[in-house]
Structures are given as structure tokens and as C-alpha cells.
Amino acid sequence: MNSHLRRAVGAALAGTLGISVLSACGEKSEDKGSGPDAAGASKTVTLVSHDSFAASDAVLKEFTRQTGYTVKVLKSGDAGAALNKEILTKGSPQGDVFFGVDNTLLSRALDNDLFTPYEAKGLDRVADEVQLDAGKHRVTPVDSGDICVNYDKKFFADRKLAPPKTFADLAKPQYKNMLVVENAATSSPGLGFLLGSVGEYGESGWQGYWKKLKDNGVKVVDGWEQAYNEEFSGSAGGKKAKADRPLVVSYASSPPVEVLYSDPQPAEAPTGVATGTCFRQIEFAGLLKGAKNQAGGKALLDFLIGKQFQEDMPLNMFVNPVIEDAKLPELFTKHGAVVEQPETVAADTIAKNREQWVRSWSSLVVK
């Protein structure tokens, strides 16, 4: 959703998903029972996450009502930084469940053996195509989203210029000096967009494509927040900052955020999505090895793919549910873009090539 955001579009617009850290608290005794009422069991379950995790208070209270466990959220930076912290504390984790590792970084988490396998209840309702660890159940898919180029509708309307639709369009002369992207070495959407270009042009063709983008004036910044809120002319933040880039790598769900946090809310989103530039991102959660509250962690994983939490996500984290019977809110469906054919790259291919692709990309585009 960044994860961002990464997916934390709403954070910058309304300050609702701030980066404050809630320390894991609760009893330190090991979880010796099947629930919080068992002798010695903790009544707190700690969720370690990237900064973009958000859920309604009512939904978290319902989890407590159903299970007896209280959720504490420990936010640990962006998706890559949060994962790095868990790797450094492997075996003695900061919490019980980790949320926010996506398919671009999944192999790092699995190769470092961070998770205790657990088959979450209700997994049979989760779409097969997002179950990238099916059979082993080291991680549980929780949400999906599409990393795509967003455009400033007013900018293109004022110039009577059609916005780009595809990867190829972005390299055309009429869009020179218009695109800002995030650094693939430091940003989740930046890496996702790089992988999208690999999916579109193949392992032998993506570098030639990026040479064209560089010649066409693509601008690279460190992360999503800078790109979207400081460089992109179509965002609420961009308008205040007098940004001059009408194209930005963000998410298919960014337009509903612009509507939700506008006052008054417009009838139409001020931004659009180039649906031929998208890469499908899937986020996972897992029970951390060495978790003090394993029973609470398992209950939380069950809840994360339950209907209540899944239907709460779209207007909190601006991501798509993974269970097939979840209903989407009208604002999300009205203003969000449906991506019928996003680019994908097989998880094992990403695992084998990610580091080299990022090095090559950095040498080609940044230096």
C-alpha cells in the first residue's frame, strides 16, 4: 500500500499514519498456553511493521474482544529498513509477528529463516496467485497493490496533451523532463517500478529502456514521500511545494487518497493512473522465530486474513484485500484504477537477480 509507501500516501496528506513507534510492552514471560488466560501467557501480541501499517481502532478492539489479546504495533521505518532490523535481531525478535515484507524482498526474509511456519485459518479463501509460499506457510499473504505511474490530470488537460499509458510512452519526447521515480536501491516503489520494466522488456532489454528514460530527463529521488509530495505537481503536497513533475511512480490506489483527504472532497480525483506501467506488489506477514507470544501471533495472523481486517485495509493502507469475498468501499472502487494485466516477475527470478539488477540500475541511472 509504503511500503510505501511506499503505500503511505495517506500519511503525508493527512498525518494519519505517522512514524511514531509504539514500544512492545506486556509481560515478558514466555507464552505457555493457547490463549491469554493460560498460566504465564502474555495478553499482548506485538506486530512489527513498516511505517505504513494502519488499522481502525474498532477493528483492533474487535480482535481483542475475540481473542483476549491486545495488539501493540512497533513501526520500524520503510519496508527494507524494517526487514533489515529483523534480520539483525534474528532469533531474538522485537515482536511476535512481522508484517510488510513484499514479493520484491521476500527471498531475503526466507533465506534468513526469520519465520516459524504456520498455516493461518482461512487461507483457503485467499487467492492462489498471491500464495507465493504455498505448502511451506512461512509467510501469509495479507494484501496486494499495484505500483504504477500517476499523472496530474490538470497539467495534461491544460496543455491538451494526452497522458502516457504505457512504459514505452514514458520515453517519448512529448514527456521529456516530466517523470520522477524513486531510487530502486532505497525505495520499495522504486524497486517495484524497476521490476516492472524487467517484466515488460525482459532481462536483456530493461537496461536499454532505462537509457531512453534517462535521455528523456527522468529524475531520481531517494523515496516515495519526496517524489510524491515534493516533486509531483498533482499531489496535495506537490501543489504547496510548487512541484513541476506531472508524472510520478506511486500506486493505483493513490487517486482515492487524494479524494479522501481533500476538503471538500472533489467529485473526481485530481490524479490518474497509467495502467500500462504497473507492477503487482504482494505483502506478507509471518510468525517470527523466537516470538515470546506464539499463540497470540498465530491468532493475529488468522485475524489479518479475516474479513473484518481485510475490508478495513483499503481506506487505511490503500491496498487490495487478498480474500476473495471481501467487499471494497465505494470511494476506493470509484477513484482507484483497476489494473487488469500488471507486470510480474517470478519470486525465484527476483531472488537470483535483484541485487545485480539494482547495482546495474544504479550505475546506469544514478551515477
Results as ranks from 00 to 15, higher is better:
residue 283 E to N: 15
residue 253 S to Q: 12
residue 286 G to S: 13
residue 268 E to W: 04
residue 264 P to K: 00
residue 280 R to C: 13
residue 288 L to S: 10
residue 289 K to L: 09
residue 288 L to N: 06
residue 288 L to K: 07
residue 268 E to S: 02
residue 288 L to Q: 10
residue 285 A to N: 13
residue 275 T to K: 14
residue 286 G to A: 14
residue 281 Q to N: 15
residue 290 G to P: 07
residue 288 L to H: 08
residue 259 V to M: 08
residue 290 G to Y: 11
residue 262 S to T: 08
residue 261 Y to C: 00
residue 270 P to A: 03
residue 275 T to S: 14
residue 252 A to K: 03
residue 281 Q to E: 15
residue 274 A to R: 03
residue 275 T to Y: 09
residue 283 E to D: 15
residue 289 K to T: 12
residue 281 Q to F: 09
residue 282 I to F: 05
residue 283 E to I: 15
residue 269 A to T: 03
residue 266 P to D: 09
residue 283 E to L: 14
residue 280 R to Q: 14
residue 284 F to P: 02
residue 285 A to I: 04
residue 275 T to P: 06
residue 276 G to T: 11
residue 275 T to L: 07
residue 267 A to Q: 08
residue 262 S to P: 00
residue 254 S to N: 08
residue 280 R to Y: 10
residue 285 A to H: 11
residue 283 E to W: 15
residue 291 A to Y: 12
residue 268 E to N: 01
residue 271 T to V: 13
residue 251 Y to L: 15
residue 286 G to E: 10
residue 257 V to I: 09
residue 287 L to K: 10
residue 256 P to H: 00
residue 268 E to V: 06
residue 274 A to G: 10
residue 269 A to Q: 04
residue 277 T to R: 05
residue 281 Q to H: 15
residue 288 L to G: 09
residue 272 G to Q: 02
residue 278 C to A: 13
residue 270 P to L: 00
residue 254 S to M: 10
residue 278 C to N: 07
residue 268 E to K: 02
residue 278 C to K: 08
residue 274 A to V: 11
residue 284 F to R: 06
residue 263 D to E: 01
residue 267 A to H: 04
residue 261 Y to E: 00
residue 254 S to F: 07
residue 277 T to C: 07
residue 254 S to V: 11
residue 257 V to F: 06
residue 275 T to I: 09
residue 287 L to D: 06
residue 289 K to P: 06
residue 251 Y to G: 08
residue 252 A to I: 10
residue 283 E to S: 15
residue 271 T to M: 06
residue 291 A to Q: 12
residue 252 A to W: 04
residue 281 Q to P: 08
residue 256 P to N: 01
residue 280 R to G: 14
residue 269 A to F: 02
residue 262 S to L: 03
residue 258 E to S: 07
residue 288 L to R: 06
residue 256 P to K: 02
residue 278 C to Y: 13
residue 265 Q to M: 08
residue 278 C to P: 05
residue 291 A to G: 10
residue 282 I to S: 02
residue 264 P to V: 01
residue 283 E to M: 15
residue 291 A to E: 09
